Each structure stands twice: as structure tokens, then as C-alpha cells.
Amino acid sequence: MRLRYNFRLYPTAGQRQALARAFGCARTVFNDGLRARQEAHDNGLPYISDGDLSKTVITQAKATPERSWLGEAASRA
């Protein structure tokens, strides 16, 4: 027998802002990683490993002025 539970959350204004920041960072990092792998594939380069991709789209991106806001969100998002 399978049970299912539904939950509804009502975050406060501060929690909504933190969630939006975390989801925005996750979406941006995912899109950057997807773009990097697609460009590598289109150019005939080898598959980019997860570790190299993480260094490129997260660690190195935080050092740039246009992506410095990635450091504001939780690292596990």
C-alpha cells in the first residue's frame, strides 16, 4: 500500500527571498553547465567531467563581478 502526503508551506517574507535566491542560483548554475557541455559537444571537445564543470560554473564564476552574487546563496542549493 502506498501512502501519499501533501504539505503546504507558508514561508515568511525573508524565507521567500532566501528561497528565490537559492532557486535562482541553482537555475543559473544549471543553465551555465548545460551551455558549457553543449558548446564542448558542438566543438568536438571531450565530455566535461562533473568536477571540472563545478570548478568552471561555480568556483570560477563566483570570482567574476557579474556572477559574484552566487556566493550569497547556500552552497548546497
Score class of each variant (00 low, 15 high):
Leu34Met: 08
Lys62Gly: 11
Gly51Cys: 07
Leu19Gln: 11
Leu34Glu: 10
Ser75Met: 03
Leu19Ser: 15
Ala73Glu: 02
Ser75Gly: 00
Thr12Glu: 06
Ala74Trp: 12
Ala20Met: 08
Leu70Arg: 12
Leu19Gly: 15
His41Ser: 08
Gly33Val: 06
Pro65Ile: 03
Ala74Tyr: 13
Gln17Met: 06
Arg27Ala: 09
Asn31Leu: 15
Asn31Arg: 11
Leu9Gln: 09
Lys62Thr: 14
Ala73Lys: 04
Ala74His: 13
Thr28Asn: 08
Phe23Ile: 05
Gln15Lys: 10
Arg2Gln: 10
Ile48His: 14
Ser68Arg: 07
Ala61His: 10
Phe7Gly: 01
Glu72His: 12
Thr28Phe: 07
Gly44Pro: 08
Ala18Gly: 11
Leu3Met: 03
Lys55Gly: 11
Thr59Cys: 02
Gly33Trp: 13
Ala13Pro: 03
Gly14Asn: 11
Gly44Phe: 00
Gly24Cys: 07
Ser54Val: 00
Glu66Lys: 14
Ala13His: 06
Ala20Gln: 06
Tyr47Ser: 11
Gly33Glu: 06
Ala40Leu: 03
Ala20Arg: 12
Ala63Val: 08
Ala74Ile: 07
Asn6His: 10
Thr56Met: 08
Asn43Ile: 05
Gly51Asp: 15
Lys62Phe: 09
Arg2Lys: 12
Gly44Ala: 00
His41Gln: 10
Arg27Gln: 01
Lys55Arg: 10
Gly24Gln: 01
Pro11Ala: 02
Met1Tyr: 13
Arg27Asp: 06
Leu34Phe: 11
Ala13Met: 04
Leu9Ile: 07
Arg67Gln: 10
Thr64Asp: 05
Asn6Tyr: 02
Asp50Thr: 07
Ala22Gln: 14
Pro46Arg: 05
Ala40Gly: 08
Glu72Gln: 14
Arg35Cys: 03
Ile48Pro: 12
Pro65Trp: 09
Leu53Gly: 01
Pro46Gly: 01
Ala22Ile: 03
Ala26Asp: 01
Arg76Cys: 00
Ile48Val: 12
Arg76Asp: 05
Leu34Arg: 15
Gly51Met: 15
Leu70Pro: 11
Thr64Lys: 12
His41Val: 01
Arg21Asn: 07
Ser68Val: 02
Val29Cys: 04
Ile48Arg: 04
Ala40Ile: 02
Ala40Cys: 03
Arg2Pro: 11
Leu9Ala: 12
Asp42Met: 03
Gln15Cys: 08
